Amino acid sequence: MSSAKVTSKGQVTIPVDVRRKLGLQPGSRLTFEPTDDGGYEIHAEGSTIRDLKGAVEAPASPVSLEDMDTAIAAGARGSMR
Score class of each variant (00 low, 15 high):
residue 41 E to R: 11
residue 5 K to H: 06
residue 35 T to E: 08
residue 60 A to M: 11
residue 80 M to C: 04
residue 68 M to E: 03
residue 32 F to L: 12
residue 9 K to Q: 14
residue 70 T to W: 03
residue 57 E to R: 13
residue 22 L to F: 13
residue 58 A to G: 03
residue 68 M to D: 05
residue 79 S to Q: 09
residue 4 A to F: 02
residue 44 A to Q: 05
residue 48 T to H: 04
residue 58 A to M: 09
residue 27 G to N: 09
residue 18 V to A: 14
residue 16 V to H: 15
residue 63 V to I: 15
residue 3 S to I: 00
residue 22 L to P: 03
residue 49 I to K: 02
residue 48 T to Q: 09
residue 3 S to K: 05
residue 46 G to L: 10
residue 29 R to H: 14
residue 39 G to Q: 07
residue 6 V to C: 03
residue 26 P to F: 01
residue 7 T to N: 12
residue 71 A to E: 14
residue 12 V to I: 15
residue 63 V to G: 03
residue 61 S to W: 04
residue 74 A to E: 10
residue 20 R to I: 04
residue 5 K to P: 01
residue 71 A to L: 14
residue 8 S to T: 14
residue 39 G to Y: 04
residue 28 S to K: 05
residue 2 S to F: 00
residue 79 S to L: 14
residue 15 P to V: 07
residue 72 I to M: 13
residue 81 R to C: 07
residue 7 T to V: 05
residue 3 S to V: 04
residue 62 P to L: 12
residue 50 R to F: 13
residue 57 E to Q: 11
residue 22 L to V: 07
residue 25 Q to P: 02
residue 68 M to G: 02
residue 26 P to A: 11
residue 54 G to P: 03
residue 75 G to Y: 09
residue 22 L to S: 03
residue 62 P to Y: 09
residue 81 R to F: 07
residue 31 T to A: 13
residue 47 S to L: 15
residue 7 T to S: 15
residue 78 G to S: 14
residue 20 R to M: 06
residue 40 Y to D: 01
residue 48 T to A: 11
residue 22 L to D: 02
residue 8 S to N: 10
residue 76 A to I: 13
residue 66 E to M: 01
residue 50 R to I: 10
residue 1 M to I: 04
residue 24 L to S: 07
residue 76 A to Q: 09
residue 65 L to F: 02
residue 7 T to K: 06
residue 42 I to A: 07
residue 24 L to I: 12
residue 63 V to R: 09
residue 57 E to T: 11
residue 61 S to A: 15
residue 6 V to S: 02
residue 81 R to V: 12
residue 77 R to L: 13
residue 34 P to L: 05
residue 12 V to K: 01
residue 67 D to W: 00
residue 28 S to I: 01
residue 46 G to P: 05
residue 38 G to A: 09
residue 57 E to P: 01
residue 3 S to E: 10
residue 20 R to P: 02
residue 40 Y to H: 07
residue 26 P to K: 09
residue 54 G to A: 14
residue 40 Y to L: 12
residue 44 A to I: 06
residue 7 T to H: 09
residue 54 G to N: 11
residue 42 I to C: 02
residue 68 M to P: 00
residue 47 S to M: 15
residue 75 G to R: 07
residue 62 P to T: 09
residue 70 T to C: 03
residue 51 D to L: 06
residue 30 L to M: 10
residue 2 S to G: 00
residue 66 E to V: 08
residue 42 I to M: 12
residue 6 V to M: 07
residue 42 I to Q: 00
residue 69 D to W: 00
residue 66 E to Y: 06
residue 34 P to T: 04
residue 7 T to Q: 08
residue 48 T to I: 10
residue 47 S to C: 07
residue 13 T to I: 13
residue 47 S to F: 13
residue 74 A to C: 06
residue 64 S to H: 07
residue 58 A to Q: 11
residue 46 G to K: 11
residue 49 I to S: 06
residue 25 Q to V: 13
residue 44 A to H: 11
residue 50 R to C: 08
residue 64 S to V: 02
residue 16 V to G: 13
residue 63 V to N: 02
residue 18 V to I: 15
residue 50 R to P: 00
residue 33 E to C: 04
residue 18 V to P: 02
residue 17 D to H: 11
residue 4 A to C: 01
residue 71 A to V: 13
residue 1 M to N: 02
residue 77 R to G: 08
residue 37 D to S: 11
residue 35 T to N: 10
residue 2 S to A: 14
